[in-house]
């Protein structure tokens, strides 16, 4: 990958709580190529949302760097970070709680423009009208309040808001998870269109592998704060190189009543991030765990030139 827009290097976020240190994200590194959509998947407690926020510095990373277009943003002053934020935006999961119910849609979408002093009042209105049409709403919607819209429409408002400052990079955090499937498909197609039209780079955070396979070019799989596997969606899906990815894949209910139901079911629950297992954090639920998995931290192994797995036993399991 020659020219990443975003490089995440050793990103770590720990939260101190009365019961101890929560290891939310530990030592995660990967690149987001310019113009690509990278999916970040994992189950609850995998750290994917924390990672998405830490890389925008919506929360401060504990350790590590985020290099955005050549600049390490983790060291930027508040004023310089504010300038940088114009280029990086976020779309949230819940389109109800992320829109202020007391503001009209026009003001909601224009908020970022106003904060950064872009254009005159009239210019901002024209811009907002164009944005609403671009996301499949209409300019008349400016005068209405968020409660007058359906879930799918509210998510479109959230997208228009994120696009207002013409960012190069967007973090979409479970942006379609709360939507019904027929509406979800509309929003996914909208994101694909916008990517093409605006040459956007995106980190798409999701728990649903099918959605990621549809939308993304590359995927990073997380479990209990750590990266498990990283690569192009096709190979990661068809020939997963990590036992966790394999289990996650086989757990998706296929919309095909004839599909074989012999899946690799994981036993047990995700351990507490207060005391993650030593060595490989997945070993307590892994069918292939060996003594070495408890003592050694996995380092990336290449399954293909652009496909990495963090399984210590990758060679053992794949040469056999």
């Amino acid at each position: 990958m020659s020219d990443p827009l975003v490089s995440i290097r050793g990103l770590t976020k720990r939260f101190e709580t009365p019961s101890g240190t929560v290891h939310a994200v530990e030592d995660v590194s990967f690149d987001i190529p310019r113009g690509a959509i990278v999916g970040l998947v994992g189950e609850s407690g995998s750290g994917k949302t924390t990672l998405g926020r830490a890389l925008l510095r919506l929360i401060e990373p504990t350790v590590g760097q985020v290099i955005f277009d050549g600049t390490d943003i983790t060291g930027l002053s508040a004023a310089r970070m504010r300038e940088m934020r114009r280029r990086m935006q976020i779309i949230f999961q819940d389109p109800v709680s992320s829109l202020n119910p007391r503001l009209k849609v026009g003001d909601l979408v224009a908020e970022g423009l106003k904060a950064h002093g872009v254009g005159s009042r009239g210019e901002r209105r024209d811009r907002v009208a164009a944005l609403l049409e671009e996301v499949g709403l209409s300019a008349d919607h400016m005068e209405r309040y968020p409660h007058a819209f359906s879930g799918g429409q509210r998510q479109r408002i959230g997208i228009a808001r994120a696009l207002a400052l013409e960012p190069e990079f967007i973090v979409a955090d479970e942006s379609v998870s709360a939507l019904d499937v027929s509406i979800q498909a509309q929003v996914l197609n909208l994101l694909l269109d916008l990517r093409q039209r605006r040459n956007l780079t995106m980190l798409f955070i999701a728990h649903d592998l099918s959605v990621v396979n549809y939308l993304c070019d590359r995927v990073a799989v997380m479990y209990l704060g750590r990266l498990m596997e990283l690569g192009p969606v096709g190979p990661v899906h068809r020939t997963p190189a990590h036992p966790y990815t394999r289990a996650l894949n086989s757990a998706i209910p296929r919309p095909d009543p004839r599909a074989a139901r012999n899946r690799e079911t994981l036993t047990g629950d995700i351990p507490s991030p207060l005391s993650p297992p030593s060595g490989c954090v997945f070993r307590t639920r892994c069918a292939h765990a060996a003594p070495v998995c408890a003592t050694e931290r996995p380092t990336p192994r290449a399954a293909a030139p652009d496909h990495q797995t963090f399984c210590i036993r990758y060679e053992d399991l794949h040469d056999a």
């Binding site: 359906s150 799918g152 429409q153 019904d180 499937v181 027929s182 509406i183 979800q184 498909a185 509309q186 996914l188 197609n189 694909l192 649903d208 592998l209 099918s210 959605v211 396979n213 549809y214 939308l215 096709g234 899906h237 068809r238 894949n249 998706i252 296929r254 919309p255």
Partner: peptide, 25 residues
């Protein structure tokens, strides 16, 4: 039919577009 066409295939074919149901309930 619309519901089935809206679901992302867990094993997608490249360049296949979802066909959403227009509008909302």
């Amino acid at each position: 039919r619309g519901l089935l066409a809206s679901i992302p295939d867990p094993d997608p074919k490249p360049d296949e577009r979802l066909v959403p149901i227009p509008g909302s309930v």
